[in-house]
Design a protein around this nucleic acid. Structure first.
Lengths: 150, 150
DNA sequence: AGTTAGATAATCGACTACAATTTAATCGTT
DNA sequence: AACGATTAAATTGTAGTCGATTATCTAACT
């Protein structure tokens, strides 16, 4: 007769990730308050600062988000003056996201703010390295499962 | 003249956590499909299977969620027959959450299902240990920052 | 040319998540 | 007993996330 393993919430990896994610959210919400940006908006800007102009599709590939999430998020960024949204003349299906002057001007200020806040976390390079190693491994295992059924 | 450190998205701990959280969500969504449960609903049941009966407040302490999230979530669990919600006679402010017979009967089936899905992740005990260690450390650092301003 | 298969965004509905406020009940102190 | 402070839950408003569907467009094929 097989024994059912009880599941203790506080020993579950998923719950540690779930909790850490919310804490990071709060951390960045505080750090980004001067710019009135949420964490998802911030990572959208991060990838745009690296790669703009980008299509919605391409942003989604970088952030693992679909248009159902990105369309309203990008509209908010547009209404706050960070980006512009224009349809490509070559292919009317794709929407091209461009950074505004405001976004280009504010880039280093945002970088500095986030970097200085991260310093307050007091993580050594070695500690960050350990986390990255563990999370990369976990990520691969989650991927191989999630893609197994395709 | 200080140099502004550029921020590469894919090297950021926060983004690894953000991504892993979404992948875990998908993982559990698949695993829990037979029970028509979401991940947040599942962890609410987990803590109830350990500690029921519980007040909404106490559940919130365990899961780090407030009543704005829990009230509608618990109403959904109630409407699907997993729990009951009754006001305490001793203190009319608090709502007592109890598990239904269905929840008690299904417990081991859910445990078995989740445990067998977790086996498919192919994580060794050592790998899980490494993740837990890293995440616990990260959690403490996030806590000390998030509670600093109080 | 006309049709169709595939791609791209947008839209909609359901569920979280949290800040801020509201309502009701309880407690403490006078 | 009465009033002010505290607490618990619910409510409201804003934002994220995803699944499923829809509308439009492109490209390829007949």
């Amino acid at each position: 007769m097989p024994e059912t393993q009880p599941i203790r919430l506080d020993t579950q990896l998923c719950f540690q990730i779930y909790t850490a994610n919310k804490k990071f959210n709060k951390f960045y919400q505080d750090a980004l308050k001067p710019f009135n940006l949420t964490y998802p908006q911030y990572i959208a800007l991060l990838t745009l600062w690296e790669n703009a102009p980008m299509s919605v599709k391409k942003i989604g590939k970088h952030l693992h988000l679909d248009s159902g999430t990105l369309t309203p998020l990008l509209k908010r960024l547009e209404s706050h003056g960070w980006i512009t949204r224009t349809r490509s003349p070559q292919d009317e299906r794709t929407v091209i996201i461009q950074l505004t002057d405001k976004a280009l001007e504010q880039r280093d200020t945002v970088y500095d703010r986030v970097n200085s806040c991260q310093d307050l976390l007091q993580l050594s390079n070695e500690q960050i390295e350990d986390c990255t190693t563990a999370l990369t491994m976990l990520d691969e295992h989650l991927d191989s499962y999630n893609n197994a059924d395709k």
